[in-house]
Simulated assay, not measured.
Amino acid sequence: MVKVDNSEIAPALLVCDRDVLGTKLDDVVNLMRSGVGRVVGDEVGKSGRQSGAFAVALDTSFPRSPGGLRTYLPEHLGNGYWDVVELVPGIYSSITDAHYHRVHRLAHPDETLIKIRVICSGTLLIGTRREAISGGTAHIHSLHPEKANCFSYEIQPGALQMVTLHLLPEALENFGIDIRALHLAIAAANTAGTDANPSQPISVSPLLLRIASDMIQSRDRLPPALRLTYITGKSRELLTEILTSLFYGVPNSDMTGTAARETRLKRRIQEAKRILDSSGATPPTIEQLARMVGVNRTTLKTAFKATYGRTIHQYHAERRMNEARRLIEESALQIGEIAERLGFAQLSQLSTAVKRHFGCSPRELRRRQQEPDLPPPE
């Protein structure tokens, strides 16, 4: 039976009395992790709207750890709040649900950061060109310390509902994202050349806006502890949808017609190759592989050859021969052991395959690796 440690501290959203907008992300995170502030205990009333009472609805005797940080707007600026939630170290999401009484200008601090904004309602003026981005749009911004002072934005009076992802490059690299390619994609959209930090609009699908809207509206539908889990999951979904749009040119939810079919088939053929690469000596049959990736046998064979320039059988045979050569030259295994490991029923089958592929027997191949001055086989 799995034992549950009831002493483990549950995450909570903390209210910070400091204005953290425009502050370095590291400082915001340190403040959040320090546990400074009161626990948010938004109370859902009969109307379904939350009163904003802080500790009324919480059992304060239950231990809590900081899972996020909330800062409310000062009265002279307007009303509403910004929530900051940590997904993983280096990747954070912020949710803005506020109404500004006047223009509010924010300058980005000197830090290397990628920001992705999805605006459901409201208007921002971005950068020195004061480019207007409004509700129903999404943008990605690449920030650098030496140019941060050149990049600021103004929040315009009125309602602002927005979700922002704050991404440290090294954290994205841990997810397998090619940061150089991402920066090139962002820079390619910077046509003006006057802004120090380029801004690229992102194709917005209905799903993208719905994810952001659901994150904002979750305050009215979920208790605080569950809301943190919900926001974390939705933030990951939002990030996946946006990165798919950037690297594949079209969001998952927006693909239709021929483009959709071609993109899906390409990904399934890539998946088939990954399965073959990890299958060792006993690869699946073509029928099994087709079922695993969700295409028919004929489509798999035709598309695989068109993509990789060889049949599935040829690809597996070449991969097995390369592995045979590596084991013969680099390992201390007996040739018979290598034959067994690679799925050859008999040693003679391995010998025949190696001689046909490399022009010499396995033993000759190993001897030539150990004695590189030997003449090549005739």
Rank of each mutant, 00 (worst) to 15 (best):
M292P: 07
S203P: 11
S199D: 13
E287S: 08
S152F: 14
P375S: 10
V36T: 12
T307E: 14
E154R: 01
A12G: 13
A148Y: 01
D17F: 09
C16H: 13
P224H: 00
H144S: 14
R366D: 03
L265V: 07
N197A: 15
V36N: 07
A53N: 12
D17K: 14
I91R: 06
T311F: 01
P251T: 03
P145V: 06
F247N: 04
P201W: 04
R38N: 13
R274I: 07
V4P: 04
E241M: 09
L184D: 15
V36F: 11
S94C: 03
T311K: 04
D19N: 07
L73R: 00
I126G: 02
F54C: 09
G122T: 03
G136E: 07
Y81A: 03
K266S: 11
T71N: 03
Y92F: 10
E271Q: 15
G52D: 01
N174T: 11
F54P: 02
D59H: 06
I269R: 02
E318S: 15
L327Y: 06
G193M: 12
K147I: 07
Q288F: 08
T191A: 14
G233L: 08
F304S: 00
P362W: 01
A57Y: 08
L228I: 13
V29R: 06
S51V: 14
P223H: 04
D214T: 11
G41Y: 02
V20H: 03
L246E: 09
S245V: 12
P198V: 05
I179L: 11
S65I: 04
S7K: 09
A196P: 12
R102M: 15
T229M: 10
S7I: 05
M32P: 01
K301N: 08
A192L: 14
V84C: 06
H357K: 12
V39W: 07
G22K: 02
S213E: 13
K115R: 15
P251W: 07
T128D: 12
E371S: 07
T96P: 00
V20A: 05
W82E: 07
K273N: 06
K3L: 10
I95H: 04
F344H: 01
P283F: 04
L207D: 09
A171S: 03
A339N: 01
V118K: 02
L228T: 02
A303Q: 07
S47K: 11
L58F: 05
N197D: 15
E146T: 11
L246S: 11
P251Q: 08
V295W: 00
L31D: 02
I269A: 05
K301M: 11
P223F: 05
Q334S: 11
N79R: 15
A332L: 13
R319C: 08
I216L: 01
R366T: 06
S7H: 09
L168M: 12
I275G: 02
H141W: 05
A332M: 09
Q346A: 11
W82V: 10
D83V: 00
F54T: 12
